[in-house]
Simulated scan of single mutants.
Amino acid sequence: MMSMKYTCVICVIIISISIIANCAEYTYEIDCNNLRMGQYICPHPEYDLIDPKTQQPRGCTKENKAKVVCLAADGLICTETKNNTFKRDIPCKWTNGYSFETSVLLSIFLGMFGADRFYLGYPAIGLLKLCTLGFLFLGQFCDVILIATQIVGPADGSHYVMPYFGPEINIIRSNNFTYKVPQQDW
């Protein structure tokens, strides 16, 4: 009687272990570009994301996108790579080496000679400021404000290099595709 009881318990344990082992072996091959949030980690935890020179994700292009390696959830195999990693575009800000701090300091101390505009790639305005002593210091004052608020940036269209958690300003613009939603009067 007792051995029959132990035999049943052992059978139940063996069946349970085989079911768990079979479930753990299941993997699904899918297109990883269609994964939803929570089904992947991006960037891969072992991926060194930030480039110390630009303070942006490595491989940032002029289109302000960087391809990074992502990790799919356990049990998912990507059809593109035949393993659990894949590449995905993330937003970034392309920089070409112009330092924000250098621009502001040049504007404050040497702006009357046009050094800030020469540094940012605007030689015509820099020469005009040099010849007129910074438009009699009025142009220098305006440039300090414009550069400090990041309205004037490098001439090549890139962004400033600034610390990853630095004083970045995101300018919100309105155009024909943005509008104010009508509100009810109460």
Rank of each mutant, 00 (worst) to 15 (best):
I14Q: 04
I15M: 02
I15E: 01
S16E: 07
I17R: 09
N22S: 15
C23Y: 06
A24H: 10
E25D: 15
E25K: 14
T27N: 11
Y28W: 15
Y28K: 14
E29A: 15
E29G: 13
D31Q: 01
D31N: 13
C32M: 05
N34C: 03
N34A: 09
L35E: 10
L35G: 09
L35K: 12
R36W: 06
M37D: 13
M37Y: 12
Q39S: 14
Y40A: 11
Y40F: 15
I41M: 15
C42V: 06
C42R: 03
P43Q: 07
E46G: 10
Y47F: 14
Y47R: 05
L49E: 14
I50F: 11
I50R: 13
D51M: 02
P52K: 04
Q55G: 06
Q55V: 00
Q55N: 08
Q55W: 00
Q56A: 00
G59E: 10
K62L: 09
E63L: 10
E63R: 10
N64W: 08
K67C: 00
K67S: 13
K67V: 02
V68S: 07
V69D: 06
V69G: 03
V69H: 04
C70G: 13
L71E: 14
A73S: 13
D74S: 15
T79R: 13
N83M: 11
N84D: 05
N84C: 02
T85C: 02
T85Q: 12
F86N: 08
F86L: 09
F86D: 12
R88P: 00
D89L: 01
I90L: 05
P91M: 02
C92D: 06
C92S: 08
C92G: 07
K93R: 13
W94H: 05
T95A: 07
T95G: 09
N96W: 00
N96P: 03
N96M: 05
N96H: 11
Y98R: 07
Y98E: 01
Y98N: 05
E101F: 12
E101N: 14
T102R: 12
T102L: 09
S103H: 03
F109Q: 08
L110Y: 13
F118R: 00
G121L: 02
Y122S: 00
P123R: 07
P123A: 11
L127T: 09
L127G: 03
C131F: 14
T132M: 04
T132H: 01
L133I: 11
L133E: 00
L136V: 09
L136W: 03
L138H: 00
G139C: 05
F141P: 06
F141C: 12
D143P: 02
I145R: 08
I145A: 11
I145E: 08
Q150S: 12
Q150P: 04
Q150H: 04
G153Y: 02
G153N: 09
P154N: 03
P154A: 04
P154R: 01
